[in-house]
Amino acid sequence: MKNFSSVFNIALRQPELEFVDIKLNRDNPIFLDPRLIEYQRDPIAKKMHKRIEIFWAEVFKAIRAKDLKRTHALLEGMKEPRETRLGYASGIQGNNVGEVLKDEIITALQNSFAIKTGILSHFGDVELFIDQIGIDRISDITTKIIKDVLIEFTQDQCSIFSSHIKLHKIKQRDIFDYKTLKWLDKEVLLPVFDGIPIILVPKTLVRLGGQSRGNFQCFYRFATRYFIEKEPEMLKDISPSGKDGKLILRDVRAYYPPSKDSLARWCAFNSNLLIDFKSDKLNGRIHILSDDEIMDVVYGNLMKDAG
Results as ranks from 00 to 15, higher is better:
Asn3Glu: 02
Asn9Cys: 00
Arg13Thr: 15
Ile22Gly: 08
Asn28Glu: 07
Leu32Thr: 04
Asp33Asn: 15
Glu38Asn: 08
Pro43Arg: 14
Phe60Ile: 15
Ala62Cys: 00
Asp67Lys: 05
Arg70Ile: 13
His72Pro: 05
Glu76Gly: 02
Met78Tyr: 00
Thr84Ile: 14
Gly87Lys: 12
Ala89His: 13
Gly94Glu: 07
Asp103Ser: 15
Ile105Ala: 04
Thr107Glu: 06
Asn111His: 00
Ser112Phe: 02
Ile119Asn: 02
Ser121Gln: 15
Asp125Cys: 08
Asp148Phe: 00
Gln155Ser: 05
Gln157Lys: 15
Cys158Met: 09
Cys158Ser: 14
Cys158Tyr: 06
Leu181Gln: 03
Val188Ile: 02
Leu189Glu: 14
Pro191His: 07
Pro191Ser: 01
Val192Arg: 13
Phe193Pro: 02
Ile196Met: 06
Leu200Thr: 09
Val201Asp: 00
Val201Thr: 09
Gly209Val: 08
Phe222Trp: 05
Ile228Ala: 08
Pro232Phe: 08
Ser239Phe: 06
Gly242Cys: 11
Asp244Thr: 13
Val252Gly: 07
Pro257Ile: 01
Pro258Trp: 05
Trp266Asp: 05
Ser279Gly: 06
Asn283Lys: 13
Ile288Arg: 08
Asp292Pro: 00
Glu293Ala: 15
Ile294Asp: 03
Val297Trp: 01
Gly300Ala: 06
Lys304Gly: 01
